[in-house]
Design a protein around this nucleic acid. Structure first.
Lengths: 146, 146
DNA sequence: TCTTGACCTCAAGTGGGCTTGAAGTTGCAT
DNA sequence: ATGCAACTTCAAGCCCACTTGAGGTCAAGA
């Protein structure tokens, strides 16, 4: 059992952030000591998980949907699998990007965007993403979601 | 040379997004055909790069700072190296997260947050992050930036 | 008992990254 | 010459993830 300031100190999350997460149902407190919220130790793992998932680019909504509001809501296997696959895809993109940057560092081309090697690296990373495929016919300014 | 609708179609970025990027100096057009902006082909690579960098969690500001407003502003090697390292760190986190999720999928523990294997995976991912170290003394609600 | 300081709630504000909408301009086809 | 679709600008709006601020409450110590 920890209060909010302990949890904040140990997790590196500001108290306001912790309260906010509780408000949106990502974590929960299990009571009060006076006014102070009390958290179970478990919540530390939960917070770490949330932090990682955010790094992976998931929204709080997606995270909640994946890990549930309580610990239990038996994390649906297919959801988890989908997220794991999404992360895999992201890892590939990041790897390509990193390689691209490292290449640029010791590439002598004056304009790196013209460097064929660089372009290939970037393009390869995105062909995976191109599963997004095609969408709206015309393009009267509307469209896509990224 | 392409106009905005062609670029939009080929890149999957909405016209408004392209105009916005131009406004903030991430891309540039090289003239007009009538009213229409004209872009060089180079900008496609640039856009791909921006997209990847966003996936990696960088803000538009950071991206601009890294790849410059024009193609040239000779991408500072140390900045690039730092970004590459940051991406490496992120890859490690994502890998751990993915492994964690995959583990949960065929872990029989009723509450996965209690599963020691899972906890270890998560913890390992974050110890890398703990370079963030310590900060403010007290914790009167102020503090940190994540 | 009184103060103090760390917590509390709730509403409003912030910054990033765009999108939307109104009003105007343009080139091309009729 | 006229219409119209596809652009243009500019300001305002929106969603997300929080932070900030005002005003209130509590419990531990002087």
């Amino acid at each position: 059992m920890l209060d909010i300031s302990e949890l904040s100190r140990e997790s590196g999350f500001s108290p306001s952030k912790l309260r906010y997460y509780e408000e949106v149902g990502l974590i929960r407190s299990v009571g009060r000591r006076g006014l102070k919220r009390l958290y179970e130790d478990e919540v530390k793992t939960r917070i770490s998980l949330i932090s990682l998932a955010q790094t992976a680019g998931f929204s709080l909504g997606e995270i909640k949907e994946t890990i549930g509001s309580e610990g239990r809501p038996d994390l649906d296997g297919t959801v988890l699998a989908a997220k794991a696959d999404a992360i895999d895809a992201k890892i590939k993109e990041l790897t390509a990007l990193r390689d691209g940057l490292r290449h640029v560092m010791n590439c002598t081309a004056e304009n790196h965007l013209d460097c064929p090697r660089f372009q290939r690296i970037i393009r390869v990373a995105l062909t995976k993403k191109q599963v997004d495929g095609k969408r709206s016919k015309k393009n009267p300014d509307k469209g896509r979601r990224n």
